[in-house]
Design a protein around this nucleic acid. Sequence first.
DNA 1: ATCCCGAGGG
DNA 2: CCCTCTGGAT
Length: 213
Amino acid sequence: MTQREVVSFIEALALANPNASSELVFTNAYTLLVSVVLSAQATDVSVNKATVGLFADAPDPATMVRLGEDGVARHIRTIGLWRAKAKNVVALSQVLIDRHGGEVPSDRLSLEALPGVGRKTANVVLNVVFGESTMAVDTHILRLGNRTGLAPGATPRAVEDQLVKRIPRDMLRPSHHWLILHGRYVCKARAPECWHCVGRPYCHYPDKRLEPV
DNA sequence: ATCCCGAGGG
DNA sequence: CCCTCTGGAT
């Protein structure tokens, strides 16, 4: 896809989704961070179902540590990978208390040092909470980037670097949400709905589905 | 059977 | 570079 087509594609997504935002339910930096940690290999809907009760019991790091792994696990057992996630959420909360005054740090190094937080989660927090122009590449963006030709790359990091390089700086931050929503609801993994895709003129996917099944 | 806003360990 | 962790929706 040419540079001009990349910009046209992103502009079309912007028009189609003027107020795109995260679909995770959160009220502050801490609840966003925990929600994103819980969202690995899980849908936002299932995460939100579990966090209602979790954050009612433990809205901050101190209460989360007090709740403990078993207490957290009770709330999130409906989400995949719940054992590791319960452990990480408690450990991460303890680190926030010990090293960051109970607050969520605003730099990548500190974020990625938290248990259960890798590059993708750090990028989401930096983008949503701290207003940075990061591009968090999840399964949707990895698929969409390769399928459409927008950002070919074998790994999330390769796709991230492509997107950062090709999307104009002033569009990069909101592009994260535009791309995720497009991947989730239009450029879907199983049956992409190309018939109402605004990126169709630029997309390289050879098997465009031009009408509903 | 495949997929979902991955990370850590070997 | 694997592999494992994990459950609900489709």
